[in-house]
Amino acid sequence: MIPPFQRFLDDQREPVWRFLVASVGRVDADDCFQETFLAAMSAYPRLRAGSNLHAWVMTIAHRKALDHHRGRARRAIPVDAVPEVAVHDPPARDEETWERVRELPPKQRAAVLLRYAGDLSHAEVAAALDCSEEAARRSAHEGLKKLRLEMSPTP
């Protein structure tokens, strides 16, 4: 049996929110969250009983985050034209890390986000990205390596 959507929403809202905060940042997380669950609700009755709901909704959230990245690339404007926004708290260390993750090449970015912010296994990441498990593992590994290089203190 597929659980009532409300229960699915209650179970998945925090993992999806966490994944989207990592993927697109706090400001845009809500738009992607709304689109993710709207798409999920529309497809929901066609799900097979016993489906992996967590991996399924993360795959949808990943696609919505991807749309967001593409849209942002199209709207890209020079940095000095960005209006000043009050920053209440200095970005925490982990926020800075995830900002760097968002700058990784697309495959690495997707694999790192799904594995470490979405809490999917490498096999689930592979299914979400429609690639082999080995490729998913390699992308995540390469992404982490690149981050490590970028974030190591400069000599």
Binding site: R13, E14, V16, W17, R18, F19, V21, A22, A29, D30, F33, Q34, A92, D94, E95, T97, W98, V101, V112, Y116, A117, D119, L144, L147, R148, M151, S152
Partner: peptide, 17 residues
Amino acid sequence: MTDLRPPQIDPADAAAA
């Protein structure tokens, strides 16, 4: 960097969304 932890979130934000 040895590990990559998911970002901290406020559960109230997720509940509000």
